[in-house]
Amino acid sequence: MRVGLFVTCLVDLMRPRIGFAALRLLEQAGCEVVVPLSQTCCGQPAYNSGDRSAARALAEKVLREFEGVDYLVAPSGSCAGMIRTHYPALFAGDGELAARAASLGARTYELTDFLVNVAHLEHVPGDFRGTVTYHDSCSGLRELGVKDQPRQLLARMPGVRLEEMPAAEECCGFGGTFAVKFGDVSARLAEKKCAHIQATGADAVVLGDLGCMLHIEGRLRRMGDDKTRVLHIAEVLAGEAG
């Protein structure tokens, strides 16, 4: 099966290794992976800022770029959620575009969801050893139902022990531009999240979205915690996380 990897703008800019980890996992699962190099952003920042026309322009671009693949997979619940649940809303009643958005939406998956439910990845190559706690990102969890998938995959790694934190499903306070529009509220939310993470005593908090990742890591470090690692699920599963 031909899978188009949607790298996401934040991975492209901040953490290319997560993109490569996703690539390796998909290949390991037997997929033929294509990476359209003209991809930029799914348009969510515009959509959430109320700029519908910019969001539509970027969404149309994604529709064109991923037309020919069987599946679109993103190492992000947020971007996958945008494409899967919001593109159809963005083009509702728009004839041909609506049909294309519905079609791509139905073929779009968050990485762990895809690995578990579509590609049926058998062997998880990662060799991470230690205790981790998992933060459920809002869009992945509440738009796409990503909850057990990453945990199932982690459970196949003999060196990993999962220690759940309280309120794992609560928002870390990132929220895109919210993080800078309401900096002190956002940081306070991150602080609550970090306290929950630290209470587990885990070596690393693992999650599936770059936004939450930068936010949580940023707050942990500012709080003086240089010890707790913040890792994307793809790096842990693919084995780059040591």
């Binding site: 800019l13 901040m14 290319p16 993080a179 940023g218 707050r219 500012r222």
Partner: peptide, 19 residues
């Protein structure tokens, strides 16, 4: 952002370049 949080540094090259 940086009033209350650090910003984790990027790796320095983009995915696109490396790929």
């Amino acid at each position: 952002w940086t009033a209350s949080r650090d910003l984790p540094a990027p790796e320095g090259k983009t995915f696109r370049e490396l790929y």
